[in-house]
Structure formats: structure tokens, C-alpha cells
Write a protein that binds this DNA or RNA. Structure first.
Lengths: 221, 221
DNA sequence: AGCCGCTATATCGTCTCGATATACTGCTCC
DNA sequence: GGAGCAGTATATCGAGACGATATAGCGGCT
């Protein structure tokens, strides 16, 4: 699951582990709290499978993360000094996605089951890489899952005699699932609208957006 | 985390793995989806550490899960046949909590950090085993965590330019967190009310609720 | 007669997590 | 002015959770 997340972020910029984690935390609300104990192994894994490669900070200095250049000494190549942006740091390994990685990314994105909230949220966050009907499929599968979940929990809520606290937890869980369903339904509606009105537009959209299918109902945030 | 869940359920009834899983799924809305690949190892772990023991289906037949008795043959002792309730099944191992287990349960319940939604939900579901002020502490810690989380996510939401889908995910996550905070705050209010009005009553309380503040007072479980 | 589906337990490999160690830099505070 | 703390950065390890899979008995359906 982390593989997908890492590849998705690397799809846009080349990044190093620490920054990757930061973005995972606040750019992708779901799966905050990914630990370094997950990220670094994931990166090694992806590197040894050829989906990702480290960026050599050679002359010309790469775009985002690497140092501004002008290094000397035999191991200085691995050091980042006097960095333009943020403050002092240790040597970094900047990763870049490879063509094989891009392929793997698309495969992971479409293929795997839409299990839990985390992996669904992740997939949705990268949904712009999906064809419109695949996107719709993703949303509808998720809705079905949530409805099934609700059907499973609801009966319990108002039949079995539960302890107050337990009951409160179950009820709140059910409410959250209902919220989620409404959200998904809004997205589905927007998606369908976009599908019918502009049936031939290329789906990359790209660019920032605000675009979307008139961004799911109401105003900002 | 599963240890706590298992002990908590075993605190009420003796149960076997399969049933344990069922209850985990629909009695504790959070952490549905616990797999058998987690439960059985957890039970073995707990058994070998003496927190739990298997119930021998001796004469007199135990209460809930074990067979009704009348077995023969040398290994028939491990078989459940002609069970009164549900239909045919395979041999079961029914587990019971030990005094050491009860102690461990209380330790796990109060001690560990209130990290994620899962483990918080779990702790709250068993909150009746906690003293009122410990309960309040649990709720307040959780609230603080959620608020911190929100403060972390919110700024991102309305500053950085994100892709539509990504943005939607982040916003929905933030909304969910807000919901959660409201829920917790309701619980805190109710808890405080119970604490001030009936400062000496035993803290078992119980009773259904229709949730929310007020709620929680009335009669037996 | 064969097969499906449900109850039930068990194991295996892979992934994730949390704790911990290491390294370097810049800032604050005494 | 230098000691120590806080922040940036990578890495490893053990423990636990998950998903897939195997096994097994039983009942019912066709």
C-alpha cells in the first residue's frame, strides 16, 4: 500500500524519504502517521525492484530536493550543504520514479481491491491518473462496501443490549460510515455529470484544478 | 491491541476464536476485519503467557459455547457434536480468562497510549471497567490528539494547491476528524455531568442512549 | 453423488509499526 | 563561547497484523 503512495508522490517530484513522509502526512489526510520504519524499507524495496532510482547529485543539480551544488572531496558527493531552502540537514537520498515504476503505479492503482479507508483514500487521491470509467468503478465499489458494512453494523445497533460505551462506539462508527457514503455519493454524482456533459474531453486535466466536475456541491471547504 | 480486545470480550463470556471474531466484527464497530491470522496467534500468545486458558469440556458442560456433552471415543473430547444452537461445526477450543488475564486486561486498558481510532474505540468500548476519572482522562487525551491532527491538516487544506481528488480526500478527512471531536465532546460533557451530580454512586450506569450528552444515566445494562 | 457454503482452526510470508541508534546543524540560554 | 536542545535525515530491529491458503466436518441442494 505504501508502494502505491510513494510511487504516486514520486510521479510528481523527485523526493527523499523525510519529505515523502511529510507529504504523506499532510497532503494525504488518510494515512497520516506512516512511520519511517515503513518508508525506508518501502523505498529500498522499490529501488531493488527497479521501480525507483536514486538521483545522483551530479553537476547541474536536480530540481527540487538536492543541494545547490559546488561540492568537493571524495564523499562530499553524498552531502548536502548550504542548502538554499530549509535549514541544515544530513545527507539525503533523493529518489526518482522510473518508467517501470510508472507502469507499476498504474497497475497498483487500478488492480488491487479497495479494502479499507486508507487504501481507498489513497487511490482516490491519485484518481486523476485513472480513466473516467475506472474512477467511477472505484467509487461505486467503495460505496457498495460501505453499504455492506452499514448493513452489518446497523442491526446490531438497535437489537442486542450493549453497554453504553460500547453502544456509543458502534453508533458513532455507523454514523461515520453513513457520512462516508454521502461523500462518495456526491463524488459519484459529480463524476457522472462530468461524464455526460463532456464525453470526449481528454481526462488528464492535469494542472491544478478547482476544476473537476464542478467540485462536488457546496462552496470551499 | 488485539490482546486487549480478546481479553475484554473474554471478560464477559468464555468464547472460541470464531465467535470472538464475529463479536469483534459487529459488537465493536471499530476494528471490524480482524483476520483469523491475527486472532489465533493472539490466543496462543495469551494462553502461553497464562492470561487465558482453554476450557475442558468435562462433565457438566460449560455455559456458552462448549458441547452439551455425551461424548465417547478417545479423541471425542475435542469434538463438538449435536450442538443445541447453530448447525454443524468442527471441534472448538473454548477460552476462558484467568485472574492474571483480568489483571493484564486492566493494565492494558489504562496504560497504553491512545493512538489511533482503532485502539481508542476499543478502549472506549471497555470504558465501563475504568474509574470515572480515568475515563475522563481517556476522552480528553483523545480530544487533544484529534485537535492536534486537525490543526495539522487544516492549514494544508486551504493553502497548497492540490488536485481536486486529493483535496476532496483531505477535506473529508478533516470533516471526519471534526465529527469525531464533537462526538468526544458530547461524551466528555455527559461524563462530567455524571461525575458532579452523582458523585458517590457506583459508576456502572449503563442503559441505552440515543447517544449524545445527557443520555447515559438511567438503569441497568 | 458431487458440490457448495458455513463453521472452525491453523500457518506462512509480507508489510507496518514503534522504538531506537546514528549523524549533522543551527539556535537558545546560561 | 560552548553546552545542550531541537530539528532534519537515514537506517535497523522485533513484534504484531493482515491476507492468502490449507485443512476439516457437516448439512443441504440439485
Amino acid at each position: 500500500m505504501l508502494d502505491l503512495a510513494v510511487l504516486g508522490l514520486l510521479e510528481e517530484h523527485e523526493l527523499h524519504g523525510y519529505e515523502l513522509r511529510r507529504r504523506l502526512r499532510d497532503q494525504l489526510g488518510v494515512l497520516a502517521n506512516v512511520s519511517f520504519g515503513s518508508i525506508y524499507p518501502a523505498l529500498s524495496r522499490l529501488e531493488s525492484s527497479g521501480a525507483v532510482e536514486t538521483v545522483e547529485p551530479g553537476p547541474g543539480g536536480a530540481a527540487l530536493a538536492p543541494p545547490t551544488g559546488s561540492l568537493s572531496g571524495e564523499w562530499a558527493m553524498l552531502r548536502a550543504r548550504r542548502h538554499s531552502g530549509p535549514r541544515g540537514r544530513r545527507s539525503r537520498k533523493v529518489y526518482r520514479i522510473t518508467p517501470a515504476g510508472k507502469q507499476l503505479f498504474l497497475k497498483l492503482l487500478s488492480e488491487t481491491a479497495t479494502d479499507d479507508a486508507r487504501s481507498f483514500g489513497l487511490r482516490l487521491a491519485f484518481a486523476r491518473h485513472l480513466a473516467p470509467q475506472a474512477r467511477l468503478g472505484l467509487l461505486e465499489r467503495r460505496r457498495a462496501q460501505l453499504q455492506a458494512r452499514l448493513a452489518e453494523v446497523r442491526p446490531v445497533t438497535d437489537s442486542e443490549p450493549l453497554d453504553t460505551y460500547t453502544r456509543s462506539v458502534v453508533e458513532h462508527t455507523a454514523d461515520s460510515v453513513e457520512q462516508d457514503i454521502k461523500w462518495i455519493e456526491g463524488l459519484i454524482a459529480a463524476e457522472r455529470a462530468a461524464l455526460t456533459t463532456t464525453s470526449d474531453r481528454p481526462y488528464r486535466a492535469g494542472r491544478r484544478s478547482t476544476t473537476g466536475p464542478e467540485a462536488r456541491e457546496g462552496g470551499p471547504r
